[in-house]
Design a protein around this nucleic acid. Sequence first.
DNA 1: TATGAATGAGGTTTCATTCAT
DNA 2: GATGAATGAAACCTCATTCAT
Lengths: 205, 205, 205, 205
Amino acid sequence: MGGARDSGRRERRRAAILRAAVDVFAKRGYTAARMREVAQSAGVADGTLYLYFAGKEALLIAILEEHAEGFLARAKRDANRVADPRKKLAAVVSRHLASLERDRALAHVFQIELRHSRRFLRQVARGQVAKYLHLIERIVRDGAASGAFRGDIPPEVTARAVFGAIDELVTGWVLATRPRPLAEQAGPLLALLMEGLEARLGAQR
Amino acid sequence: MGGARDSGRRERRRAAILRAAVDVFAKRGYTAARMREVAQSAGVADGTLYLYFAGKEALLIAILEEHAEGFLARAKRDANRVADPRKKLAAVVSRHLASLERDRALAHVFQIELRHSRRFLRQVARGQVAKYLHLIERIVRDGAASGAFRGDIPPEVTARAVFGAIDELVTGWVLATRPRPLAEQAGPLLALLMEGLEARLGAQR
Amino acid sequence: MGGARDSGRRERRRAAILRAAVDVFAKRGYTAARMREVAQSAGVADGTLYLYFAGKEALLIAILEEHAEGFLARAKRDANRVADPRKKLAAVVSRHLASLERDRALAHVFQIELRHSRRFLRQVARGQVAKYLHLIERIVRDGAASGAFRGDIPPEVTARAVFGAIDELVTGWVLATRPRPLAEQAGPLLALLMEGLEARLGAQR
Amino acid sequence: MGGARDSGRRERRRAAILRAAVDVFAKRGYTAARMREVAQSAGVADGTLYLYFAGKEALLIAILEEHAEGFLARAKRDANRVADPRKKLAAVVSRHLASLERDRALAHVFQIELRHSRRFLRQVARGQVAKYLHLIERIVRDGAASGAFRGDIPPEVTARAVFGAIDELVTGWVLATRPRPLAEQAGPLLALLMEGLEARLGAQR
DNA sequence: TATGAATGAGGTTTCATTCAT
DNA sequence: GATGAATGAAACCTCATTCAT
């Protein structure tokens, strides 16, 4: 019982620190952020941070892993709910935009602070983004096999292009002074990706 | 004559410092880069850096402006050489990939170091990237007007998607241990963007 | 109890840093003094200095305030112990000389380092010296009112002259290689100030 | 002829640099003053300063010597014009105040910038101030011998007290926001020094 | 003689992290 | 486990001075 209660307390404190880190990193930027401010925002002493995380960069990595895993799981679940590859892709894109639109500070950290160095990016790319790219790649590959998607474009290129396009929309939204809702942009983006930019004869829109 | 020679000397020295900065920033990352190493790499004294650039960040900004302007000018020129909007877009994409593939250290700085803070990103986004997005947007808009492109997708979304897709390909290339040539990826990316991901009945590829 | 002990510890450490600063400033001069040397002399780490004082100049200001206040309080107390304005003035002069003679390094800092810039002097002059001048002025004014002192000299001039004369004796003592004791000079100075330089008929000395 | 003309040119340039140094030192303070600003103010190139003076501190010393010598010569001449020791002292005091009141920037440098370090002060004290103290001391000593002045106060103490009193008046004038004319203060100061602060029976003022 | 571009030594301060309590 | 006072490494930039022209 004591163990369980302690564990709950520990878990809550860990979450508070992580939330504080997101807010402070978003507000100040990773480099300018001070561990002291994170501690104060979380309501703990400076030294306590180090009982939960190995250091400043570990905090950044933890933010990434904490949310990326949940996000990836939700995206996979959403994709699995439908059979049509087109709908799978649409589900992933919508989930991506919705997940980040819900929490602007977190989106800021994801789009900007998590990319502050090559070494860090490598860890990110090898870790979470790679998993995400694989998910898209799998959908595209399956779609090509079933005849729903074209088969003449390397799925890795498609996956990167899809991810890059979404990613840029989000970054624009994060940096904008008066951003337009992300959710609105899912439809047009999907239309572009699915059907292409060229006008079709006999199927004008 | 002395003035001309001095001016040439100054110009050469400025270029040497800028080149050194690209190399050191790419090798160490902006934060870990030491001004001393830049100076040594450029073959000048520490203090000389400050006769040419206001400081470390000014060096980063100068790298951006120096190359972004030239790149943008070349992209515009390429686009203007052809009339077909499809070919214009193809020209810009190819130029983008080719420009960065030519100089990997510079590409590294563009893809990673130039994005190390929100404040900096804002300057970048508002400055050079915005110009680039406008270029793409203009092509897309004109293409829609002439009937070559669809008219139902907001051109800003298209522009961001195109830029994001290219950008991500480049970033993947910069971070990869064994990158595949960027030039090879222009074709598939364009095919995807132009014609879309969905398979066409009666026109299988 | 822990709080009281900590507070004592903090107070002792603060005093040690201040003492170290006096010694190093006197030995090297303010500009040439190194914060590192102050830290080493105080037996703390470099960064610890900044937990107690805002910076190098704050150290100088703290030396001034710390000692000037005590000195002024003692001078006032001494003056209040006697009723005769002549004795009041004598008490202040003696206290001034005695206070600085007790601690040569401190005297050095007071006479030289505390005057290293106009900006700083203004703070000094407006702050502590002004208070000191007021004390003398008050004594002189009261003495004139009671008929003990002349009434035809502006008290501000008298106060500045008295302060300047003492100050110069101390500076001479600080700069001298083989200084003669300051205490010995109080009597002659007072005789001069009180009775004047001119010989008196029928009252030869 | 060429030599004479060159020499005149050199002399004028030297004077311009010295004047520029006085102005810049007074405006910024010695430490904050930049050699570049002195050069610009004098209308010469940075390097030219070093063809006339050994360095920044040499500039300060040159200001001192240049003006102190002239001032001392004038003070001596003034003193020699009268026979009465009282009038000699009055002449020196008046000259002192008048000399500095004429040029506020120079007065600033004399009162503040010339005292910025012990090493420097030693040079000053050993050099010019010592000569000045000797002048006063000689007058006081002669006055005592002739019976005009008291003989019971060590002349060195008197000299320092006189110098200190004048010096403090000037410093107050330099630092004041709205200074009252120095010349007005010569009379009261002399009255104090000559006749003393105590009220005289039967000779009230 | 005059120039001014180049030099390069030098130091205060910040802040992530540690560890005695 | 929690605290927070203490640590100390680390680097950008300034500016007096030099010297090739």
